[in-house]
Every structure is written in C-alpha cells, then in structure tokens.
Design a protein around this nucleic acid. Structure first.
Lengths: 143, 143
DNA sequence: CTACATGCAAAAAATTTGCACCACC
DNA sequence: GGTGGTGCAAATTTTTTGCATGTAG
C-alpha cells in the first residue's frame, strides 16, 4: 500500500497523470508474488471490475518501464513479465519449471563485482542484467 | 567443421536422421558469432540456396533442444535465440543494446557455487540458468 | 516400405499502430 | 480546454498445428 502511493507520487512528480487504470496496474504489480504477464494483468484488472483494453496495458507498461517503475523479465516462455522495481531491491528469480512457482533471491555477493570486472576487461558498460534459475522447487522434486 | 560433424554423429547415435536441412542448420549455428533467431536462420539458409520453410526450422530447433544440441536464450526483444551447446562451454552474454554486438563471457565458478547455496538453503534444484548483461559495447560508448 | 521430415496454409498468441473519443490537471 | 490516456479494430510478428507429400534409412 505504502509502496503504491510512493510510486504514484513518483509518477506525479514526473508530470504523469494518475488515472484509475494506472493506479490499479501499480497496485496489482505491487501485490503480486511473481512477475506478471500482460494476460495476468488483464485478468487481475477484470477481477477488480476494471475492464481495461490490452493496448492500454501495453502502453502503461511501456511508460512504467521508461520511468524505471517496473522491470521487464523474460522467462523461458514466449511472453514478457513485469514486476515493480523498488530501487534497491534488485534480485533474481527461482522459477519452478513444473508448477511455475516463482521466488525471489538475492546474492550476498552481488553481480556488481562481476560487472566491474567486465567493464575493466571488456570495456563493456553494463546497464542491466538478467539472471534466472530454472529448475524444480522443493515440493515438485518429491512428486 | 569438426564440431558440426561431431554434433551430427551425436544425432545419428540417438537415432535421428541426417537431412540436408538439419546439417545446414547445425553448420550455421556452429559458425554464428552470436545466438540466432529463427529469422536469422531462415536468411542464412536462403544464402546457402536452401529454401526452407519456417515451420521446419521451428521443428528442427525443437528437436535439437530436446537433444541438448542447441540452447535457447531470450534477450530483451520478442524472439527467441539459439546457439549450439557444446557441453562444457557454458557461458553468458554481453549484449550491446545499441549495435547488438554479442560477446560470450564465462565465470562458471561463481554461479555453480550459488546454485549449491540455493539448493541447500531453498531446496530448489537448479536445472539451468540464464544470465545476460545488457549495455553498451566499447565502440558504442564513444558514439 | 515406412516412419520421420518437410512444406504449405491457416490458426493462435504476443505485440504494435492508427484513429477517434474521453477525462485528468 | 488541451494534452495525454483509453478503446477498438486491424496490422504485424512470432510461434504452433493439421494435413498432405516426400525421402532417408
């Protein structure tokens, strides 16, 4: 809840309008236990009694990406997924390929060190990275 | 060249037929400096005077994936990319978001250690991971 | 000969675009 | 009231599927 209004303030400060749709999308993404696809978002919006067109969702996400309020992640399947990005909470994902349960993890020893090495050795300026682990969660291993 | 025939032997051993198309796809992927999309493959095949249908390419890739001969990677854009997987050469990618130049990098030790930690702490069995760095290559930084 | 490989057409799924209308500030 | 947000329909792009035909082993 707190995060949601913080993000909305953030947007307002940047001169963007606050509409019902935008607010709902941010709320849904903030509450989600895993990154959501556009389809996921559409279903969640429907549950909120907000019939939103998919085009609008795509456009909202585009803007939220631009403002670094959401982050785009691609798992192994076709569609992109989105999660709110709360500045300092950078993390990666454990994705169960069987039940699709998704968990966040963060490295003690961040990839930041690696990025510095890359910068130094390869002269490549890393702007972002994406790291996903795919496998079987504890309960799926038993099945 | 050597790799290509090794991979073909591998397939033959697994009881798969060796067709012109399959051979060409493996050759192209082996020679590619970066993971190729289906479109890339289709163009490359055309250059080889082999007019192949996209459906065939998708089906070939599906099979090569099944036999662990190619690996599927998803960058930030919509389409999937494929590269040959030579068993022990596991690596990650530096992708320039401007010129799309792609370079391989490896630092296996770290992630393997991480996978062990994950297994231990989270009881999650990691089967594969995907790590991509996006940013600007040396020459694009100057522009 | 026969099972697998291929081509073609069409469907399905994911994303983008153009244009008209609506509502936040 | 004007700019930016939204809906709708249609186009584009990527991937999948069904069926008829071809070919490697």
């Amino acid at each position: 809840m707190k995060n949601t209004s913080r993000l909305l303030d953030n947007l307002r400060d940047k001169g963007e309008r606050i509409t019902d749709v935008r607010k709902a999308i941010i709320e849904i993404l903030s509450a989600a236990p895993r990154p959501l696809s556009v389809q996921d978002l559409l279903s969640a919006l429907k549950k909120k009694q907000l019939a939103v067109n998919k085009t609008t969702v795509y456009r909202q996400l585009e803007q939220l990406l631009f403002h670094n309020i959401v982050r785009e992640i691609r798992f192994q399947d076709r569609s992109a997924r989105y999660e709110v990005s709360l500045g300092d909470d950078h993390h990666h994902h454990l994705v169960c390929t069987k039940c699709h349960k998704t968990e966040d993890i963060s490295f003690e020893e961040d990839l930041e060190r690696q990025e510095k090495v890359i910068m130094h050795k390869k002269k490549f300026k890393v702007l972002q990275h994406s790291l996903e682990f795919f496998g079987l969660c504890a309960s799926c291993q038993k099945k």
